Amino acid sequence: MKRKWQLLASMLVLLVGIGVWSARDTFATARIGTTYVAKQTCSCLFVAGRPLDSCRTDFDPEALRPLDVVIGGSAVTVSALGGLISSRAQFEKEYGCHPVN
């Protein structure tokens, strides 16, 4: 019976390890994607002066589906994975838009 529990525990550790290994790429991709969308949307809104609906057409609709875009003041915050990953871009009159993470 003890051997059975050891085998189950080993399998659980292995599965968790595989999950963590696989998720690292997902988190890296989410960080890159949210930063890119925040910066581009900030530039579109505050530098080019386009409305948000027009800015959304710059991206593939499927790529925007899992992202939440929030405009506040002169900044754009984009989050993914239920808010676990988020990036912010700030507009400064003299410098344009830049990521602030």
Rank of each mutant, 00 (worst) to 15 (best):
L67I: 03
Q6L: 10
A75N: 04
L45V: 07
S54Y: 08
V16C: 08
E92A: 12
V20R: 02
H98F: 08
I32H: 06
R31L: 13
G83P: 10
C42L: 10
D60W: 01
F46W: 14
N101A: 04
A48V: 11
R56N: 14
M1T: 04
P66V: 09
V20W: 02
A9D: 00
T77G: 01
Y36F: 06
S86N: 11
T26Q: 15
Q40R: 09
A28Q: 15
L52I: 10
V76N: 01
L67W: 05
R31T: 13
Y36M: 04
W21K: 03
S86Y: 08
V100H: 00
L12W: 01
V47Q: 14
A63I: 11
N101H: 08
T77E: 05
M11G: 07
S87K: 05
I71F: 00
P51R: 07
D60K: 01
H98T: 01
G33Q: 15
G82D: 03
K2S: 10
L14V: 03
Q40T: 14
Q40I: 11
R31Y: 07
I71K: 06
G96K: 05
G73Q: 02
Q6V: 10
L8G: 00
T26Y: 12
F91M: 01
V47A: 13
R50G: 07
K39M: 08
G33T: 14
Y36R: 08
C42V: 06
S22Q: 12
C42E: 10
G72C: 00
C97N: 05
H98G: 05
D58L: 15
T77W: 01
R24A: 13
T34H: 13
W21Y: 15
E94G: 07
A80V: 06
Y36P: 00
A28T: 15
R65V: 09
I32N: 05
G19A: 06
S79D: 04
T77V: 04
G72H: 06
G19Y: 08
L14F: 06
T57M: 08
A89V: 05
L7Y: 01
N101T: 08
R50I: 07
A75C: 02
G33S: 14
F91C: 00
P99E: 04
D58W: 15
R24F: 10
V16I: 15
V76C: 06
V69E: 05
L7M: 04
I85H: 06
S74W: 00
L15D: 01
R24W: 13
E62S: 13
S54Q: 12
V78W: 03
E94H: 05
N101S: 11
L14G: 11
G19S: 09
A89R: 03
R50W: 11
Y36E: 10
G96L: 02
M11I: 13
F46E: 12
V100N: 00
Q90D: 09
R24Y: 08
G96D: 03
T77H: 01
